[in-house]
């Protein structure tokens, strides 16, 4: 019974930190204007329109649009069988549900992780979609991705291994 009452009690000393976190968020978000309102405070933050910070995922110059993502997809063939046969030391990231496996957040963005990438516990590694419900799956382990076991946009079962991770 006593577990889930994080809300009302501990507001007091947190406000300064909370406001700081929100301002950090706004400054990183690239949003032009943000108004936040709670029972205790209101903040309104407006960005100077001449500040050149609206970058986010927009690759400003149209030049390198197509070539950029291609090499990433082509690469992983070679380096996989590194230390040969012993896969037992590897950890797996498994699917928590039945659905469709996607390696990127949406068709226009890069994959979350590729072979050779380091992942930390809590880092998003893929999307599993089921019945239009989209689930960003976070890794529970840390290490290096050694293999992606499922093709993009293919169906996965509950508990099916998705990634092999070398924890060393």
């Amino acid at each position: 019974m006593a577990e889930k009452q994080s809300r009302p009690n501990k507001n007091e000393p947190m406000k300064a930190k909370e406001i700081q976190d929100l301002i950090d968020f706004i400054s990183k978000s690239g949003l032009e204007e943000v108004n936040i309102e709670t029972e205790e405070f209101k903040i309104k933050v407006k960005r100077n329109s001449d500040a050149p910070r609206m970058v986010e995922h927009m690759p400003a110059a149209p030049a390198p649009v197509a070539p950029a993502p291609a090499p990433a997809a082509a690469a992983p063939a070679a380096p996989a069988p590194k230390s040969g046969n012993d896969e037992s030391k590897y950890l797996t990231i498994k699917s928590p549900m039945i659905g469709t496996f996607y390696r990127s957040a949406n068709p226009e963005t890069d994959v979350f992780v590729k072979v050779g990438d380091k992942v930390k516990s809590g880092q998003p590694v893929c999307i599993i979609e089921a019945m239009k419900l989209f689930n960003e799956i976070e890794s529970e382990v840390s290490g290096t991705i050694v293999k992606v076991l499922v093709d993009n946009a293919s169906p996965v079962e509950y508990d099916q291994p998705l990634f092999l991770v070398d924890p060393s």
């Binding site: 998003p124 419900l133 989209f134 689930n135």
Partner: peptide
């Protein structure tokens, strides 16, 4: 309607 969740292990965060 668009519902997007974050899962860690088999827990919805």
């Amino acid at each position: 309607i668009l519902i997007e969740s974050t899962l860690k292990g088999s827990m919805i965060e």
